[in-house]
Amino acid sequence: MKTTIRRAASSAIPRALRERRLLQGQQGFERRFLPWAFLAPLLAVIVGVVGYPVARTIWLSFFDGEYLQSGPFVGLQNYRDIFADPYYTGALVRTTLFAAAVVVTTILLSLAIALVLDAAPRAARVLSVIVLLPWAMPRVASGIVWKWMFDDQYGVVNWLLVNWFGLDSFNGYSWFSTGTPAMVAITVAVVWHSVPFVAVSLFAGLRGTHGEVVEAARVDGASAWQILRRIRLPMIRPLLVVMTTISTIWAYQSFDHFLVMTTPPGGPDHSTEVLSLLTWLEAFAQLDQGSAAAMAVVLFLMLAAVSVLYVRLNREDVR
């Protein structure tokens, strides 16, 4: 509120103009040098621990890399190898299905929660803190808790399914002894962890849509559902796209939950191996740096493609 007043008071002269005038009035040294001095630490981090590793991983993916040593140049051999490896292609398909399930569930649940928060304005403040709380629980800890809740003998999930929903087949049901149920259990745990951030962001976005347009539509007799479908959701569409992008990237990178909840990691019998886990095991258990680098590059390209796709989608919708 205060800032609006202040800004309104001084808006006579365009801000950019005054800024430029003031900066021009300063010494050239400060104008040229200072912003880069401010940016230097960030650039150092980006070059040193992001840029260099990325370039190096791409480089390594073209070399033989047994025992984490750089061997001879092998061209695209590592890429051919991983795509010929059924464990890798299996993990690729599995991760994609898992990510799709996580993203769809996360977005739908988050939207529902955001709408509930929006419908209860007086409680919204406290509720959004409660909703966001699971985001703060360390992934390792949440993986352990969910594994305990999915325990075959003493887990609350089976107890709930049998006693509340009458599904007797879940009596003593073992979630982690085969691939598909294990993936389902892990999906639940990952969704629980990724919903909070998305839900609270969507809620913040929805809150910004109350205004003249909605008010006018209401006066014209539009129902709440019509207002939601035709006005409010389209208004937060860019945000929805951003959140879908973010949760897709998160889901494709899932690692912690899989490492914690499956024994051995990615088991039983490789049936829960996802890309991040497989890449990490390839590098630091199999010590095959070349293949692992190739896997990392493929994942990176996939995520980049997904992001570009979503950005395009967003732009076309605006037009």
């Binding site: 621990v49 990178q253 991040s276 994942l299």
Partner: peptide, 19 residues
């Protein structure tokens, strides 16, 4: 800066180890 946010950790983990 945006690109750094969507990098998978696996693309950083190997070179950083050697580094």
């Amino acid at each position: 800066i945006l690109v750094t946010q969507l990098l998978p950790q696996t693309i950083l983990v190997i070179p950083l180890f050697t580094l």
